[in-house]
Design a protein around this nucleic acid. Structure first.
Length: 432
DNA sequence: TCTGGGGTCCTAGGACCC
DNA sequence: TCTGGGGTCCTAGGACCC
């Protein structure tokens, strides 16, 4: 059996841990750039605020209702997420981290269940432990597959205190499928939801009643078939406990990216170059934090996403050998950027993606491009760079290519809360 | 003036190579 | 006059997730 532990309204919960008077109050958290609403407390949802709503349109109503507004604070949320995972790791050996606020637990092997204890009681105990040690409320769904565990989790109800739902028997599974609108099944998005409704399928049970061949034809081929089998109780999605992110076990991720919308559109190649160099630095830091090197680098430039014909331009560089050296990656990125730039075009966002990842240690020397001495020097330099920036703040030490004009391209973050748990300057003050 | 960012998987056409 | 097939790389796009 698989349990899905979901920290609902996670970002709001994180803010509330450090400001308990926000409990019971409407709270929203904004995306990067203070662009749109990405997290809402139950009270804010009840007032009608929608996920993804543009902030500048919602602002009058937010003010009118006295809703507390926060810019997103990923340093805080990431740290709180690790605390939650640590507690979960105390309960089960296999934790598959799905996102910053959700994790699957492998409950197979009844040695994890005390004699005579029900799955439902076990779920409640885990929930209580996370709440006690981290202060974050969660909901737990338990079922034979990931997709069914998600479905079970959706059937929890915080208002009634029904925080754990288990699907252990076929009758329970059937009832849950019948109670789930088709467009709320994990893996059915806006497009397929609309299409299936038009075809007369209303609940998840309607979908499982269709033949496999029909699903293959109408639901994206192999992807749809996997979803259908998962709903039937046959696991098709890997359970990947190595995804637990810590230094000893690097995540089995396939890419690392850093992309940003600009505060205002940019045309100047020099400014775009500095922005891309800054993004390379962020992405490379993330790479090193996970103990990885990358052999493939993609530079991306985007035009206005709201325009009738938005476009994303990409250019790929395959490096002679995998690397985590900011300098090497920056050179490759700027060279590709030059090829990508079209004079006069206004770009609204840019980014860097690193792929072809492998663990740092097993990096091969580039044939004719690197000596062992060069590799060692690069590694020492990166270690010191990260240590200095960790201690004195991001970008304290940077490559010249990243420039000093970030005010030209950086977005807004007007309501940022302190990084309470990760920055000595921002320790929680009990007395104001 | 103001609409996020970071991921996953799958598909497909064109260029190029053998 | 005949006019393959398999492979890789690049680019783009579609769908989904949180």
């Amino acid at each position: 059996m698989i349990a899905l532990v979901d920290c609902n309204n996670f970002y709001v919960s994180c803010q509330r841990v450090f400001e308990p008077r926000l409990n019971g109050q409407p709270v929203v958290v904004l995306s990067n750039n203070d662009g749109c609403l990405i997290a809402r407390s139950d009270e804010a949802k009840a007032l009608g605020f929608k996920m993804g709503e543009p902030y500048h349109l919602a602002r009058p109503a937010l003010q009118q209702h006295g809703v507390r507004v926060f810019s997103s604070n990923y340093a805080l949320y990431g740290d709180m997420s690790r605390r939650v995972l640590r507690v979960l790791g105390d309960w089960v050996p296999e934790v598959d981290v799905y996102s910053i606020d959700e994790a699957f637990l492998n409950l197979d092997g009844t040695q994890f269940l005390r004699r005579g204890q029900s799955l439902s009681q076990y779920g409640s105990d885990i929930r209580a432990a996370v709440l006690q040690h981290v202060g974050i409320p969660t909901c737990v769904g338990v079922a034979p597959t990931k997709t069914l565990a998600k479905l079970a989790n959706r059937l929890t109800n915080r208002r009634t205190g029904h925080n754990v739902v288990t699907l252990e028997t076929d009758a329970q599974r059937q009832a849950a499928l019948a109670a789930t609108p088709i467009e709320q099944v994990w893996g059915i998005g806006r497009r397929y939801g609309k299409k299936l409704l038009e075809m007369g399928l209303v609940t998840a049970a309607d979908l499982t009643a269709m033949p496999e061949g029909w699903v293959r034809r109408h639901l994206g081929g192999v992807v749809g078939v996997r979803l259908w089998q998962e709903l039937h109780g046959q696991p098709c999605l890997d359970f990947d406990p190595a995804a637990l992110e810590d230094e000893e076990r690097p995540a089995r991720r396939h890419s690392v990216a850093h992309t940003r919308s600009f505060g205002r559109p940019q045309r100047d190649p020099a400014v775009l170059g500095e922005a891309v160099a800054s993004f390379v630095a962020r992405a490379a830091e993330k790479l090193r934090r996970h103990g990885l090197s990358a052999q493939v680098l993609t530079v991306l430039l985007g035009t206005d996403r709201q325009a009738p014909q938005p476009h994303t331009f990409t250019a790929v560089a395959t490096l002679p050998a995998a690397t985590h050296d900011t300098g090497e990656l920056t050179r490759a990125a700027l060279e590709r950027l030059r090829r990508l730039l079209r004079p006069g075009t206004a770009y609204h966002r840019a980014g860097v993606m690193l792929s072809g990842l492998e663990p740092m240690g097993q990096t091969q020397l580039g044939l004719f491009t690197q000596t062992p001495e060069q590799l060692q020097r690069s590694q020492q330099l990166m270690t010191r760079l990260d240590a200095l920036n960790q201690r004195f703040g991001q970008s304290t030490v940077r490559y010249a290519a990243a420039g000093l004009q970030e005010q030209k391209w950086e977005g807004r973050h007007n309501f940022r809360s302190p990084a309470y748990t990760t920055d000595w300057q921002n320790l929680w003050q009990v007395c104001a």
